[in-house]
């Protein structure tokens, strides 16, 4: 939980997976944290992971589309040839 971040208290059910995780704070690197802080830390981590997964999925879709792009398929090998014949590698 970031310092200075406004905090709102929520009473929410947690799943068995989360309950099990907070029983083993050493596995989370949160040995000295309260249960509430552990749940909050897990929630923040979850937000970061979901955002990252969504970004990566969008990237993968875009790259796949670019890979199929006819102009790119024609051009890329040619650029490699020019670089090689020009002595870049």
């Amino acid at each position: 939980m970031g310092r200075g971040t406004a905090v709102r208290r929520l009473s929410v059910p947690v799943s068995a997976v989360v309950e099990d995780a907070i029983r083993h704070p050493d596995e989370l690197g949160l040995e000295k944290a309260s249960e509430g802080r552990m749940v909050a830390a897990l929630a923040e981590l979850g937000v970061a992971l979901v955002r990252r997964a969504r970004r990566e999925r969008r990237q993968l879709e875009l790259y796949e589309r670019y890979e199929q792009d006819p102009e790119r398929r024609l051009t890329s090998p040619e650029l490699e040839r020019i670089a090689r014949e020009g002595g870049v590698f």
Partner: peptide, 24 residues
């Protein structure tokens, strides 16, 4: 539509940043 293909020259083209390459 992502950062890897930014619109440039007032929207006339996109730069293919992943294809950055070196020529003589």
């Amino acid at each position: 539509t992502l950062d890897e293909f930014p619109l440039i020259t007032r929207g006339a083209a996109r730069a293919c940043c992943g294809d950055i390459t070196t020529f003589q």
